[in-house]
């Protein structure tokens, strides 16, 4: 389905990654252009803020899980990913899926109002008050705001996401050279894209790997803190995939 002009392997890879990214993102790229999402009203915000902590955590865990499932589907569509061993596919997804979810968030971030799309409308950080983890929420919004300011194209986000997943530096990989080879192809494709579009300056402005890792660690810490305060809720009421990855 690619035009004849795209014979260079890295261009083909970029197209393939873009297709996988578009097919597995929500909201879809078409819905981002000139979006007409409403902002939550005062009453709606109060309603969310009045929810018991355990309920709000469960609600957010469900939304995160839906996003993770889309990232798993993205990974499966990445050329070469399914050729890795099952073990390494699991290692890479366990380590990288949340990072991709966090990066993808910037697509549905409205910089003018500092809100993010949540359950169909735009929400500011205060909506999540009942979670009881204001620093984590603030860090996530800061990340989304910073990424949003970079005005990344869907191709850039697709390749960035692929590189977050296909990371030969993750611990416990069985066949590190194989992952490194795939990572190398994606890395070249990304650099070729940036050169072609004169966006090489993007590299220095991206969040550092350490920052994303710290954010994911913060999330894990908050899950543990929540479990201590609300024993049994995670086991009884959280999505199984969320428990498997984070609890």
């Amino acid at each position: 389905a690619c035009p004849q002009a795209l014979r260079v392997p890295s261009e083909l890879l970029t197209q393939s990654v873009l297709l996988s990214h578009r097919a597995t993102c929500h909201p879809r790229a078409e819905d981002l252009q000139g979006h007409r999402w409403a902002t939550f009203s005062r009453e709606e915000i109060c309603a969310y803020q009045s929810q018991p902590t355990a309920e709000m955590w469960q609600r957010c865990a469900r939304r995160v899980t839906e996003a993770i499932e889309r990232v798993v589907e993205f990974a499966k569509r990445l050329r070469g990913f399914l050729e890795l061993s099952q073990h390494d596919q699991i290692v890479l997804l366990k380590a990288g899926a949340m990072e991709v979810v966090l990066v993808r968030m910037c697509r549905a971030f409205d910089a003018a109002t500092r809100t993010v799309l949540f359950e169909g409308k735009l929400a500011g950080p205060e909506l999540f008050r009942s979670l009881g983890c204001p620093e984590l929420v603030a860090s996530i919004f800061d990340l989304a705001q910073g990424l949003s300011a970079l005005r990344c194209s869907e191709s850039e986000l697709g390749l960035l996401s692929a590189l977050l997943l296909v990371n030969a530096g993750r611990p416990w990989l069985q066949d590190r050279p194989r992952v490194a080879r795939l990572q190398g192809h994606l890395d070249v494709a990304f650099r070729v894209l940036l050169r072609r579009t004169r966006r090489e300056g993007l590299l220095a402005r991206l969040p550092s790997p350490g920052r994303l890792r710290a954010l994911c660690s913060q999330h894990l810490e908050q899950v543990q803190a929540f479990r201590r305060l609300h024993p049994g809720v995670v086991s009884a009421a959280f999505p199984p995939l969320y428990r498997e990855l984070f609890a």
Binding site: V72, L82, Q89, L93, P240, L241, E244
Partner: peptide, 16 residues
């Protein structure tokens, strides 16, 4: 794979 049955199942599931 034993500790990640759901992830394993999602990866096996051929719905791409």
């Amino acid at each position: 794979q034993e500790k990640h049955r759901i992830l394993h199942k999602l990866l096996q599931n051929g719905n791409s």
